[in-house]
């Protein structure tokens, strides 16, 4: 399988910031895409009587799903968004390419500064 070989090479290839940033962008992108498929299918259930939608929500209101939504979905969306901003900065301002590695580290600092307080609020609201 090409995918297995790719994952093996990705893990063993000693790439630096750029490769890690790209890999995380792809993994979070595919993850959010798969969630979105579930999410749209789920919202389509609004076409049926209310108990259909509400009975599916038991799954969404479970502790496991809430944890996944914070440390999977929200974390993934936030990384993908911040990394996307960095990609666009470098795309439209090629001079910034020289600083892509420090830009990525700044991006990680911003990620932590945004994620930790907002995820804490989500966790507090959850329990």
């Amino acid at each position: 399988m090409a995918a297995v070989a790719t994952i093996f090479r990705a893990v063993t290839y000693r790439g630096r910031e750029g490769q890690i940033a790209w890999m995380l962008h792809r993994v979070t992108g595919v993850g959010v895409f798969l969630f979105l498929a579930l999410h749209i299918t789920n919202i389509f259930l609004m076409s049926f009587p209310s108990d259909v939608f509400n009975s599916v929500l038991i799954f969404y209101h479970s502790v496991l799903f809430k944890l996944v939504s914070i440390f999977g979905l929200y974390l993934g969306v936030l990384y993908h968004a911040l990394n996307g901003i960095r990609v666009m900065i470098v795309d439209f301002w090629p001079g910034a390419g020289k600083y892509q590695a420090p830009l990525w580290r700044i991006q990680l600092v911003i990620f932590v500064l945004v994620f930790v307080p907002s995820a804490t609020v989500m966790l507090v609201r959850m329990f």
């Binding site: 919202i43 609004m46 209310s50 108990d51 939608f53 509400n54 929500l57 969404y60 209101h61 809430k66 939504s69 914070i70 979905l73 929200y74 969306v77 936030l78 968004a81 996307g84 901003i85 907002s118 609020v121 989500m122 609201r125 959850m126």
Partner: peptide
């Protein structure tokens, strides 16, 4: 960047996941 992040924060923080129901979406 604006809409999806707003949607996520609005549904998860402003409303909270437990508040989401058929009635809320309606």
């Amino acid at each position: 960047l604006v809409m999806a992040v707003f949607h996520l924060l609005y549904m998860h923080i402003a409303l909270g996941m437990d508040a989401i129901s058929f009635q809320l979406i309606a």
